[in-house]
Design a binder for these strands. Structure first.
Length: 507
RNA sequence: GGCCCGUUCGUCUAAGGGUUAGGACACCACCCUUUCACGGUGGUGAUACGAGUUCGAAUCUCGUACGGGCUACCA
């Protein structure tokens, strides 16, 4: 039997989406699209204490920016809703109770204080974090230790309680991970995880299994940090819906920062973005910079993420989203964690800026220019400028410096770069050049350069000696594309005006 | 502490028993260029360690070391 491929990304809306999260989305998306399947987003908001306004919207905005549109979600609709777990609350309890009835789970009435006491009492040097497991549970207040009548009474009085899974004392649970192969666990070493919380909400453990079943998920992918709880989920599948219906699992390697698991703190600390887009924490007001605002192209962002833990076996590194869909395979995803390298990330962006046509860059650069106070009226010119300077832009934000002087005459000039070698001979040369340029009717790069060289030679100057001064006149500094290309785009009037204005500054 | 996963240049990785261990980023040198880049050529640089299996191991097995993750009524 081959079920239709259906995968899900199940984020918890508690803040910005970071690199690892987006890569998880990406691999889900690529796998689904490659197989002709569906990709859906399910919001895992079962922890009401961690609700963060705006986080859910942010997730969808990020997916949109990346071009990874879900087939089903809160925003996209679908036949398997609701796609927000808080709205599915009513359904979970029956599954937990079914487990209790079958002896695979139990009611636990321990208060937070009692749990804390248990941890303190059992804490030793060799066991710094005691678990609520098969060695402990008979010492706690639950339906296993209480009489049937007492349990019934507590339940009928609506005593706060949770439902915990009853992990077998001595079984081996194993499954085949698509990336790691067979992974196995001893159930006696795993604790009795809470399945249903006192507020009636399921924990992740119950919700992920129930919803993956109800939403007919065929393949369940998540980060490696979930591997230790896999045995809980396997057992839940076994007792609730049958192992034969369980999705195939794959646990992605972690994306590491300079010191282990990537955190948003790393961004501030090491000067690179961690989130996809800017995220402002609504409580603290703290802004965490995103790749998008840093000047990354979504094409590059997707590309670099895809290659962080996967490759197609060839030496190809630049992939469009379509190419990734074509080439992706779970078997080629690495099992080892990957340390994020910002230099390489920038390289990907640079490559994509070079690769994309100016027309594709135009709207983004235009927005950036206007954000920096340059109102562009001539988009034809801007497009030419982009074509001319994009090779020297690693980040989109670099366009501001590389393009600004085409739209605004320099306000300051790096005269110091010229003065030391300045002399009367050069001054005369430029005076003559201005006169010559005034007579040019075919204002083109070739004509301007030829005229420049002839004039230089006539003045006993090597053309190279006077190119830098011309650049400073037109640009203001030692940067930008070839100087005659600049003059050509600037036009006759503006070029001559800038020359006349700057010439006296070199005295 | 326990459990789980992992280990090829500084970083991302290729090589699914036989290669001078390949590529990319970064770095260095040279070329191109009298701006800065792009580009081109070349260079430095890795199979964690120890056993075993084998004619032969980066590749298979075991151990050790190291790294990471998990160990909440968070996901």
């Amino acid at each position: 039997m081959s079920k239709k491929v259906r995968v899900r990304f199940a984020p918890s809306p508690t803040g910005g989406l970071h690199l690892g999260g987006v890569r998880t989305v990406l691999y889900n998306y690529l796998f689904a699209k490659k197989q002709g399947g569906d990709f859906l987003v399910r919001i895992e908001d079962t922890d009401q204490t961690r609700y963060v306004p705006g986080a859910e919207e942010y997730i969808f905005d990020t997916l949109r920016w990346c071009g990874l549109e879900p087939d089903e979600s809160v925003q996209h609709g679908g036949n398997y809703g609701p796609y927000r777990q808080s709205e599915r609350k009513a359904g979970y309890r029956q599954y937990a109770e079914q487990l209790v009835k079958n002896g695979h789970a139990y009611y636990a009435f321990d208060t937070p204080e009692e749990l804390e006491k248990m941890r303190q009492d059992h804490k030793t040097e060799h066991n710094p974090s005691p678990q609520y497991d098969h060695t402990i549970r008979m010492k706690m207040r639950n339906s296993l230790t209480l009489s049937e009548e007492e349990t019934a009474r507590l339940l009928s009085e609506n005593t706060r309680h949770v439902i915990r899974i009853k992990m077998p004392a001595n079984e081996t649970v194993s499954f085949t991970d698509m990336i790691r192969g067979e992974v196995s666990f001893e159930t006696g070493l795993v604790d009795d995880k809470v399945l249903l919380k006192a507020d009636g909400m399921p924990t992740y453990h119950l919700a992920v299994v129930v919803d993956d079943y109800l939403m007919e998920i065929s393949h369940a992918f998540r980060g490696e940090e979930w591997l230790p709880s896999a045995p809980v989920h396997i057992l839940l599948w076994k007792h609730l819906f049958g192992l034969e219906n369980m999705p195939q699992w794959a646990h992605f390697p972690l994306i590491l920062g300079p010191n282990g698991k990537l955190s948003k703190r790393d961004g501030a600390k090491y000067g690179f973005p961690v989130f996809a887009m800017n995220w402002t924490d609504p409580k603290s007001g703290e802004l965490t910079e995103g790749f998008r605002e840093k000047g990354f192209l979504p094409e590059a962002f997707i590309n670099l993420l895809a290659l962080l833990g996967w490759n197609d076996g060839s030496e190809k590194e630049l992939f469009s989203l379509d190419e990734l869909v074509q080439q992706f395979s779970m078997e080629r995803v690495h099992s080892a964690g990957a340390k994020f390298d910002y230099d390489k990330a920038k390289w990907f962006n640079h490559e994509w800026i070079k690769k994309l046509p100016a027309t594709a860059l135009l709207p983004k650069v235009e927005a950036l220019m206007s954000k920096n106070g340059f109102t562009i009226t001539d988009t034809i010119l801007l497009e030419k400028v982009i074509e001319l300077v994009k090779d020297r832009c690693t980040l989109l934000t670099d366009f501001v410096q590389q393009a600004c002087f085409f739209f605004q005459a320099p306000a300051t000039w790096d005269a110091e770069a010229v003065k030391p070698k300045w002399n009367g001979q050069k001054k005369e040369f430029f005076q003559q050049l201005i006169r010559n340029y005034q007579d040019v009717s075919d204002w083109s790069l070739a004509v301007l350069e030829a005229n420049f060289q002839t004039t230089a030679v006539a003045n006993q100057l090597k053309p190279g000696e006077v190119q830098l001064p011309l650049r400073i006149m037109l640009v203001g500094g030692k940067f930008g594309p070839p100087v005659f290309a600049i003059a050509e785009l600037l036009g006759k009037e503006e070029t001559i005006s800038r020359m006349e204005k700057a010439l006296p500054l070199f005295e």
